[in-house]
Design a protein around this nucleic acid. Structure first.
Length: 113
DNA sequence: CATCTGACCTAGT
DNA sequence: AACTAGGCCAGAT
């Protein structure tokens, strides 16, 4: 389905979609890109999220992981806002830099949005 | 201006 | 089923 937001810019779309992720849920870069109609541009999503730290309101980028559920971007998170820490605060169990029961915690933008 | 790398994903072996 | 290789878009060197 098409986003109810507006496609003013790719980064804006990514921001809105990531902000729409419910607490305690996670999604993947590919799902976001696909939901935005930019299938295959999953790398771009990651790059957009990289600069999303300075954006306001804060973008819960910690809820975005790769397809396997690994916190690949944990090392790029600023100090005090580590991925695993925030996810744990939301009730998500992290084991070895990966989300436990990722498929259960997975949130599909197109389906649930 | 050409090349490489990177918060990835899909497909082939 | 696990591993390797290729493809994708954008920024950095």
């Amino acid at each position: 389905m098409k986003n109810t937001f507006f496609a003013n810019s790719f980064e804006q779309d990514v921001y809105n979609l990531v902000r729409a992720i419910p607490e305690g849920r996670v999604t993947s870069y590919g799902a976001i890109a696909n939901a935005l109609g930019a299938a295959g541009a999953s790398r771009r999503v990651g790059w957009v999220l990289n600069k999303s730290f300075g954006a306001v309101p804060s973008v819960p980028a910690h809820r975005v992981v790769n397809r396997v559920g690994m916190l690949t971007g944990a090392g790029h998170f600023p100090p005090g806002r580590e991925m695993a820490a925030q996810l744990r605060s939301e009730g998500v169990v992290i084991e070895n830099n990966a989300v436990v029961d990722f498929e259960t915690r997975f949130w599909n933008p197109m389906t649930d949005l």
